[in-house]
């Protein structure tokens, strides 16, 4: 995965970038399965590797597929990135170790979901239960965001057709 990302950053042919992005998404989905997040992995495989690849290709079709040579040497961004690595590593050292069952995120709300979800909702898949029932407002807002994004794309890409009709008249 790291190799894919490094090649991605260096490659200037955008078509290769898009294909690599698909590969990267599939690898990410595999990692997510290994981490027990089956629902998320399924979404990542279908959304990340499927739909967004198609969308990127569609956009590429409308734009040039070759990136221009960068004018400047990327030293400043590299320096910024390196300093951010330093800060993030420093912060990560304070986080709980991998698979630590006493970490705060395992002791707070989650035991209630795991113990009571079956009795309260009758749905064995806790992810679905939390998604649709306990956090129903979240998902409602999220659906609205997707809807709004769709409307935004329509608004952005539809306009030229109308102006053309006007000029035709």
């Amino acid at each position: 995965m790291a190799i894919a990302v490094v090649v991605l950053a260096r490659s200037r042919n955008l078509f290769a970038v898009v294909v690599l992005m698909g590969i990267y998404s599939f690898l990410m989905a595999t990692v997510l399965v290994a981490l027990d997040a089956v629902d998320v992995a399924m979404t990542e495989a279908s959304v990340g590797a499927g739909i967004s690849t198609v969308l990127l290709l569609g956009a590429l079709h409308l734009c040039k597929s070759e990136e221009a040579k960068p004018l400047r040497k990327p030293w400043l961004p590299l320096a910024v990135s390196a300093s951010i690595v330093g800060m993030l590593v420093f912060g990560a050292l304070g986080l709980p170790a991998f698979s630590d069952p006493t970490a705060p995120m395992h002791t707070h709300v989650v035991p209630r979901y795991l113990n009571d979800a079956m009795r309260e909702t009758g749905v064995p898949n806790v992810v679905t239960a939390v998604l649709a029932s306990y956090r129903g407002y979240d998902t409602l807002g999220e659906t609205t965001v997707v809807f709004t994004a769709g409307i935004g794309v329509i608004a952005l890409l539809r306009r030229r057709r109308n102006t053309k009709q006007e000029t035709a008249k």
Binding site: V38, D39, A41, M42, T43, S46, V47, G50, I51, V54, V123, P124, N125, V127, T128, L131, A132
Partner: peptide, 21 residues
């Protein structure tokens, strides 16, 4: 089957869209 196994509305929606694409 999203209640009993992995899956649900998001994934199903995306797969339907993928089929049509």
């Amino acid at each position: 089957h999203g209640d009993f196994g992995p899956g649900g509305g998001f994934q199903a929606g995306v797969i339907i869209a993928a089929a049509v694409i």
